[in-house]
């Protein structure tokens, strides 16, 4: 293998992309937990940790640029680096959505939740599942699995719809909860966006494997 060093660097890049995805999965879980318990301290932690995710994004982008500039990658190597660039940007944005939920917790303050969370944790679990599977498809170069992930986005959209209508119902019944209910709609919306970003990652995987840029799922939102 004449380019052992180059392929080792590509593998490292892949490995660190997985690490970054674990960082954001963790952030999503903690942010939803903080919202569920209205735990300001945990929320502050999520907000603070996002700086690490941002840092990782710049590090990985820098590595991609370095490999392009110095190694002249072509064909599947080039597609892998282009896909990685796109994936780390999606991951960074997913991190921002989790951070956003942390900020919503802080805005919410100590007043009780309008209602106990039901849809939100399910949505978050589904979104995290999609995210993990999209990264798995990335590692396995599995375009078929990536395409299936995109179908799951419809479930998350449906749950968001239900959460939205439910919360609007609360607002109509009791206008004094409008602010708090709006916060929950924002949080649900963030999770809906996370699932969309997971489908972006799946699209990057399809591009990596097939070489054809493909729009897999047009989100309702």
């Amino acid at each position: 293998m004449p380019r052992e060093g180059f392929y080792r660097r590509i593998k490292e890049l892949e490995h660190e992309t997985l690490e970054m995805s674990e960082m954001v999965c963790d952030a999503i879980g903690r942010s939803v937990e903080a919202l569920k318990n209205l735990d300001a301290e945990a929320a502050r932690q999520v907000v603070a940790n996002d700086a690490q995710v941002d840092k990782k994004r710049w590090q990985l982008e820098d590595r991609c640029v370095d490999l392009i500039a110095t190694q002249q990658p072509v064909a599947s190597d080039l597609r892998e680096i282009i896909a990685t660039l796109s994936i780390v940007r999606d991951l960074e944005r997913i991190g921002d959505y989790a951070e956003g939920i942390g900020k919503i917790v802080l805005m919410h303050g100590h007043e009780p939740l309008v209602r106990p969370l039901t849809y939100l944790p399910v949505m978050a679990e589904k979104a995290v599942g999609m995210l993990r599977r999209s990264l798995e498809a990335f590692v396995q170069r599995d375009a078929k699995a990536a395409r299936l992930i995109c179908d799951e986005d419809d479930d998350v959209d449906r749950l968001y719809d239900q959460a939205y209508h439910d919360l609007i119902g609360h607002m109509i019944k009791d206008p004094s909860v409008i602010t708090r209910a709006t916060y929950l709609i924002w949080a649900a919306h963030n999770i809906e966006r996370i699932a969309d970003r997971a489908t972006n990652i799946a699209e990057s995987v399809v591009y990596l494997v097939t070489g054809t840029p493909t729009e897999l799922n047009v989100s309702k939102y």
Binding site: M1, P2, R3, V74, A75, L78, G211
Partner: peptide, 19 residues
């Protein structure tokens, strides 16, 4: 050819993974 060649042999050559 340089982004998505059809033949494995082309892919291997331009990526420098043989030769």
């Amino acid at each position: 050819i340089f982004t998505n060649p059809a033949e494995q042999l082309t892919e291997d050559y331009i990526r420098g993974s043989f030769g």
